[in-house]
Amino acid sequence: MLRASAIALSIALMPVTAFAEDAFDKAERTMKAFEDVFGVTKGKRRNHTKGFCIIGSFEPQDAAILKYTNSPIFTQTSSVNGRVSHKGGNNKAADNKFADYGLAFEITTPDDDTHIIGMNTEHFFPVSTPEAFSKLMQAKAIGKEAVKAFAANSPELKAHKAYHSARDKTLRPYEGATYNSINTFYLVDDAGKRTAIRWSFVPSNDQKVVLDPSENFFFENMQANLDAGEVAWDMIITIANPDDEILNPAILWTGEHTQIKAAKLIVNSISTEAEGECDPLNYDPLILTDGFEPSEDPMLEARSAIYAIGVSKRLGEKE
């Protein structure tokens, strides 16, 4: 399988017909709206613009996960090339204020299979369709009144705002945050049986702010936590119940579920984007190993198309 860095370059050169044309058009409009909202930092990602690189390992944990999937990421320790970031397109986002973050990484198995995982600290998405997301971003580009008008006709956005505004706003560093898949994927076993899942990456230890908070201290804070001990997350996979809405990322799964601590992501070192290896990577959620399949959630294709446009733009700006 191609390494994700090579995949990023090939995606950047794909013709429009590589995606459904309608999905590509929506992705173009959404990308333009991101640029209108946040401006453009040339050579940088349009969303999750501020961040830095992590290098580490992905280690299988509970073998119970092998009942549902034959993916090689759960059978052997693999290497990780990843990135932590602030949500949004502000390259100067303040570290000393509560915010939502992102965690994305490329897993490379000993056999050179590649698997991409990308997550956010939000618990669910503000809208359920690419059309609604594009319109939401366009409303944000216009201004607050346009967003209010959009929200007036969007129960999903209202529910998202109500839930997430009620969260604990205690400042947490990247390494102290929990990240969620939001979209649904399928695990696939040897017989081809599919099991719908979501997952969260939960800090393995109590990772705190250990330095005096400033507008740009997260890099040094993670390094201090690395120097003091382990920085890691447990991958908690949640198996869907029969009544769960598996194709709507704007709905949170609630109640009791079967959960498996399937793996552990361990950070070995960090680096700036200028010095590290994460900057050219395209963290496309549709790059999966055998034993996984994307669900039919239309937001997955939309994310993939937006990322393809984004990597083409920023790599072109670096030439």
Rank of each mutant, 00 (worst) to 15 (best):
A99V: 00
V40L: 14
A94K: 07
F52R: 09
K92L: 12
F34G: 01
V40D: 11
R45S: 13
A33M: 04
Q76A: 14
H48R: 04
F74Q: 04
G89Q: 04
A104F: 01
I73Y: 11
K44G: 02
S71Y: 12
K44Y: 04
P110F: 09
F98H: 15
G39P: 13
C53T: 06
F34A: 07
M31T: 13
G88T: 03
I54T: 13
R45A: 14
G89F: 01
K67G: 04
G56H: 01
K32N: 15
G89V: 02
P72H: 03
V37P: 01
I54D: 09
T30S: 08
K87G: 06
A104I: 05
R83H: 03
T77M: 10
L103S: 05
G39D: 08
C53P: 02
T30M: 00
F98C: 06
T108S: 11
V37C: 01
E35G: 10
K50G: 05
I73P: 06
P60L: 08
I73Q: 12
Q61C: 01
A63D: 13
N70I: 12
A33C: 02
H48M: 04
T30R: 07
K32W: 03
P72T: 10
T41Q: 06
A93L: 07
G51V: 03
N81M: 05
V84F: 06
N47W: 00
N90A: 08
S85D: 03
F98M: 07
K32Y: 10
V37Q: 02
D95G: 11
D95P: 07
R83E: 09
G56E: 09
T77N: 11
Y101W: 10
T75F: 00
V40M: 08
T49L: 06
V40E: 15
F105S: 06
G39Y: 10
